[in-house]
């Protein structure tokens, strides 16, 4: 499909067709949050089970488009068994990538590649920035996950 390769990269379509960490966890001990995208009606449920400071398990239920499903699936895979601080750091860097201006994407990629904190596979989602309406799809799962691991005021 000419023009859409940046959006529908192979790894994204793979996570969409074979989503990782699907399902539910019993609450409690797990914590669950729901997120909505009022623009398109997408809904996500994120379940997180922690053991001390470590994310022992994470399960996702998404009713949404390929981008919201793939992004949530990739998120779950990348935060599993990480500490809360590491996860928090990853959320911040992912959001930073999503808020990059289209014209800066390429330079952002260069600095990422040389960085030991590289986002790895998650960089595949960078193309979403070219389609501003879809950024909310990509960040839906992340924002919901963020609500769980960020202590409420």
């Amino acid at each position: 499909m000419p023009g859409l390769e940046d959006l529908y990269k192979e790894i994204i379509l793979d996570h969409y067709k074979n989503p990782r960490n699907q399902g539910e966890l019993s609450v409690p001990p797990a914590i669950m949050e729901e997120g909505f995208n009022p623009l398109c009606g997408d809904e996500v449920k994120v379940y997180v089970l922690t053991d001390g400071n470590v994310i022992k398990d994470i399960r996702i239920g998404v009713q949404g488009c390929s981008i919201s499903q793939a992004s949530a699936s990739m998120m779950a895979e990348s935060v599993l068994n990480k500490t809360l601080e590491e996860a928090k750091n990853l959320i911040e860097r992912f959001k930073e990538m999503m808020s990059a201006h289209e014209s800066n994407i390429d330079s952002a990629e260069l600095s990422e590649d040389n960085n030991e904190n590289s986002l790895g596979d998650l960089q595949a989602l960078k193309g979403v920035v070219k389609y501003p309406v879809r950024i909310k799809c990509a960040t839906l799962g992340w924002n919901t996950f963020d609500q769980i691991i960020t202590p409420k005021e």
Partner: peptide
């Protein structure tokens, strides 16, 4: 998902609404 349909349709110049 309708969002994905409308994204691909846009590539062909076709404007449709996707959502609720």
């Amino acid at each position: 998902h309708p969002h994905d349909i409308s994204q691909v349709l846009d590539q062909y110049g076709v404007c449709v609404r996707a959502g609720h």
